[in-house]
Design a protein around this nucleic acid. Sequence first.
DNA 1: TATTATTCAGACAAACTTGTCCGTTTATAT
DNA 2: ATATAAACGGACAAGTTTGTCTGAATAATA
Lengths: 168, 168
Amino acid sequence: MKQKNLRPFGQQREYTTFDTEPMFSKATEYAIRAVIFIAQKSNSETKVSLQEIAAAIDSPEFFTAKILQKLSGKNVLITSSRGRTGGFFMTDAAKKRPVMSVLEVMGEDELFNKCVLGLDKCSELKPCPMHHQYKTVKKNLIALFERKTIAQLAAEVNAGNSFISSES
Amino acid sequence: MKQKNLRPFGQQREYTTFDTEPMFSKATEYAIRAVIFIAQKSNSETKVSLQEIAAAIDSPEFFTAKILQKLSGKNVLITSSRGRTGGFFMTDAAKKRPVMSVLEVMGEDELFNKCVLGLDKCSELKPCPMHHQYKTVKKNLIALFERKTIAQLAAEVNAGNSFISSES
DNA sequence: TATTATTCAGACAAACTTGTCCGTTTATAT
DNA sequence: ATATAAACGGACAAGTTTGTCTGAATAATA
């Protein structure tokens, strides 16, 4: 039962809007939320389906499918199986991986290497004027995503202390 | 002397690339660099032209023009004057404003209010599993951009301690 | 064996960002 | 006055991200 265009695209905005960006791309946001849900609900025997995942994290189903394909790429984060009782699951080892490993698969860990002013040549020797101060904040960000494991986040959600859906 | 397509567009990439995002949009990166340069080189009597700015910060000229229009919108950050000896300049008061004011004009200050996992309803009462830890990092980011003034960054560049161009 | 339920793979479409161009307006300089 | 040199404003083009759809492959079940 595939959903049929339930969410029409919004109105186009003016040219000069330059709208705000979140920290990560939508794809990465969905990826993290999906991985948390899969960690929560699956193990080597119990799988979860694309539809369950998309419903649980309130994400567009087909787009989420693409992301899950990417995440299951090297079978290091999530594992997929096809066919009638197919679905996605995570091993205990995978659940213990840091959130950073999701960012890496999504190719978004480079965020932490880039110059905040967009200079290709920005470095310790030839820094942009924000470089040194920004470095500290960047280290905190990296530490945060390196330290937190997927299992830890899943446990919080399991305990009812936090949430991974936009739904009320 | 308008530059003619010196920088052809790159090759198209595969669909599933999900490329990495920097902290800010290109527009905002150029905006910050432009404002630093204008602070450096201008005052109420001495103006700088679009061409000088784009050359100095190594940014696409016409795109930069759009950004400067936006920045001069309320005449609170940069001021523009038309005609033969026209150009852009900043007052001393404007130079003392924090970098955050540039982000505000570019509409990118919302970055600091958004949930890192993209949840609309994420809040203290109903947090996402990264919420509390991420809050601390966010505060550091906000503090950084609130504390640093445009004049401070311009002074660093003036002193030759840092740079705002990608050119070697 | 046929049906069913799942992921997979690719094409496509919509929206947004980035970048380019051109004609107009404005003010100075000749 | 006229030419010149600058910003302004709108249209347009290229590229990326987000989202949708359809058919194929796969594996279990009836």
